[in-house]
Design a protein around this nucleic acid. Sequence first.
DNA 1: CGGTGGCCTGTAAGCGCTTTCATGGTCGTG
DNA 2: CACGACCATGAAAGCGCTTACAGGCCACCG
Lengths: 354, 354
Amino acid sequence: MAQDEPDDDIAGVRRRATIEDVAAAAGVSVATVSRAMRGLPNVAFSTRERVAEVATRLAYRADPAATRLATGRSRSVALAVPLLNSWYFSQVVSGAEAVCSAEGYDMIVMGVTGDEDRRALVDETSSIHRRVDGIIFVDIPVSSDEAELLDHHDLAVVTVGNSTDRFPSLVIDDVHVGELAVGHLISLGHTRIAVIGGQRIDPLGFHVSDSRRAGYHAALDRADIVADPALAALGNYSVCGGRDAMQTLLALDEPPTAVFAMSDEMAFGALLAAREAGIEVPDELSVVGVDDHDVSVVVDLTTVRQPVADHGARAARLLISQLEGERVGPSRDERPVELVVRRSTAPCRPARVR
Amino acid sequence: MAQDEPDDDIAGVRRRATIEDVAAAAGVSVATVSRAMRGLPNVAFSTRERVAEVATRLAYRADPAATRLATGRSRSVALAVPLLNSWYFSQVVSGAEAVCSAEGYDMIVMGVTGDEDRRALVDETSSIHRRVDGIIFVDIPVSSDEAELLDHHDLAVVTVGNSTDRFPSLVIDDVHVGELAVGHLISLGHTRIAVIGGQRIDPLGFHVSDSRRAGYHAALDRADIVADPALAALGNYSVCGGRDAMQTLLALDEPPTAVFAMSDEMAFGALLAAREAGIEVPDELSVVGVDDHDVSVVVDLTTVRQPVADHGARAARLLISQLEGERVGPSRDERPVELVVRRSTAPCRPARVR
DNA sequence: CGGTGGCCTGTAAGCGCTTTCATGGTCGTG
DNA sequence: CACGACCATGAAAGCGCTTACAGGCCACCG
């Protein structure tokens, strides 16, 4: 029996080649194979070639589990998002995945729905420990205690959407987003301007919704318009959420003539609610959203565009460059946004009798 | 120096507790800790309790890399999708992720764009080997050679969208989808019915687009309508793709009065192209899509609904039950679809002079 | 001609688990 | 009371890599 042949069959099933098989077949030690395969210095050219050739022949590939155990690095990263079935997050996932796979990293996505999910993730006895080398938090606030724990777990971190004083972050100026959207409505002559946004998810971080709301107020203030609290509606970031919120607003004694929805999906909901109520957009109601969703052009929605997939890609690159040894301190990369005017907004007209 | 205290500091950094630390602190062997932690039989109740208590105190958690190496199982699965920034796939991801995380599996998503990506994935020297326990292929055809290799890699597999004779699969009756959509248009009196769909991505599997196209033809045949090849447009599954295809169709000498788009996103593109060309929907053109996208209700699109997130969830459950030891043979679980009539379709009217 | 320094390579000790096998103790039973 | 049977436990051998350390070899220099 040629029992020492590396590609020996056991009960007809060919065992996967290990580094030892390659070493034996190439007539070198496993250490040399390891070095040769990873392109480390101090391997003679001829040896390197022979190892490469044998490795190809045996279809050898280092077992990732063994590599992880030995090095402590997993070559995988986590992407934590509050929810997955929304346009925004799917774009981020898409952008990040492209970069990760190009760099040879596995990307594992985790939906972090509530506070308790997040705590479980970052906890002392955390499930994240040693599972990934780094993690991207998208629109998930990270307290400084949690940041400390993450450091302690020796995790590289990048945040998208909020920033901390500890990790690099990728953000947009959400106050500016609000100002841009509402400023546009004001410039069209609107004064009864509603806002549809999310609640403060978390008391820890300064949340997106709050910032955009601040921009809303800033724009109103600048135009000497008094904000009517009744015009601030809450809803979750979805078509449904926007629709419900819009219905509430339309039921007011004095409904708004314009509405700023904090995401395009919410804006779609607002459009839907308007149509259901027989209200013409933009004649009777102007609507502006945020994101520039693929479908926004279809429904002719005015919006504040942000390059979402690019956020994901940049975040992934930032994270990976940290993992590749670059010492990256806390930073705040503010990405540009842009008002895209379409036909869901129009000059304010005197209310018609309905 | 209390050097043997399990939670000893080294240069101020507390080392993560290992199984040995727990064993020492609980006064048992590592084998017992391992057994106790995993709920295996043959551990005295008192021992089990003590180990649990110590483990909690030391915030112990088994290092996944070590577990993987020792067991050969990674407790993670892959989700392979052709692209990520589309509604359909983000829904699948969402559904699958929820199940995986509930079951304690990591889900790594991989975009498998073209043929070469797929080949690289499944290849003999495959990168997938030992990285995940199982894989879900969503709308990615798998040849029988590839299936063999996957088996050889000892991977559990579930396919969504196409079926093989080897793995369990989750599908819809795509022929029926086409018949339903086109049948609806025919029942409204349309005879010049166009179809917008994808090309055959791959000669290997019977692809979604082809089946839906077959349904289109079947419906036409049944109504004794001769299919006009000029009315079959190709485009990728996106708003842009649908728009481009629709523009081509509208430029025909004798444009269609109705169009069946193979996804809602394509249908959105068709709506956009129609509006840009000044064509009224549904008065001059009826449009029907497939999926029931979140936004479809907003643009009042008639569509063939399929429960997409549920596909993802079911696929994940199917995969995990295989991994948990259930011996699952090839199967074909056909999920229901449903025609949802909205206002993008209307009875065919004689063409107006433009 | 001995010493010195550079390369290249090999040996072996981990990494932190799981699991087989052996062992000792405790009961129940004839 | 002796003998298995059975249960709880421990010792130790992996799992397949990486890497610190130690040689061996050769060239080059004084």
